[in-house]
Amino acid sequence: MELPDFDVRIPDTLKEAAELLARSAPGGAMSLAGGTDLLIRMKEGVSKPGMIIILEKIGKIKVIKASKNRIRIGGAATFDAIIRSKIIQNKAPVLAAACEKIGSPQIRNRGTIGGNIANASPCADSVPALAVLEAEVALVSQSGERRLPVIECFKGPKKNAFRPDEIISHIEFPAPKQPLRSFYLAKGQRKALSITKLSVACQMEIDSGGKVKKARIAYGAVAPTVIRGYAVEEFLTGKALSPGVLKEAEEIARKEIKPIDDIRSTMEYRRIVTGALLRRGLSSVGKTEQ
């Protein structure tokens, strides 16, 4: 397949970019960050923008910074920048772990977190991590800014909940006071450069008595969108991570996901292994506690 014809704009500011999007017919213009999803979709004829707006020059939306109690990641921050960021390594290791799973060095150099969200794939690796961080996505358009919890950004596979004229300017989440325990575990068809066939992200606070104070869990590639593990979160709250509790959590997880058969895996495999990964992850989190 060959790319169709299209116009290109490279605005210097977010405002300019928003203007360009607002001026064009819905879907007529699309923003391009790393291009690692969009160009492929265009080659396949799935996306047909007449104009692409390259976000490359808008430095503001690439910044990663921490304020007193919030962390903010620019929508056009690359995975590589996120993985290398000391802020993320220290305050949100679950996100660094998830971003490390993505693609190859080339893809991590080009691909951005905003693109990962906007692309709305249930397999997107950064999204389960952002979900357990309870991140909010800031969307900018000519009519101003609005915010959506990351988990509400998706309507279905490859369908985001944004207006076509909106740009993800940044993603924000609370900075934990003390480091929290977390993990991101994923399986693909091979060890690297493979699309995730199932994943589990978790971040939790454990009180001094060894009981779960707050648990946040999310699953990837086992439902039409990334989903939160509300049932397991509720079940774990207030409990110590004993082997019996872990076993039960595993079973609850299997029930709250809705996997399917596809070219990458089977429903049964996804169901069983998602539970197993959750149990293994929780068990290792429990161990570091001691």
Partner: peptide
Amino acid sequence: ISFNEKGMIQNPSFSTYIIPTSKD
């Protein structure tokens, strides 16, 4: 290789036809 019911190859790309990488 995955075929549809019409005998057409369904995974004509390296994102769906999986070969080992150096890590495997």
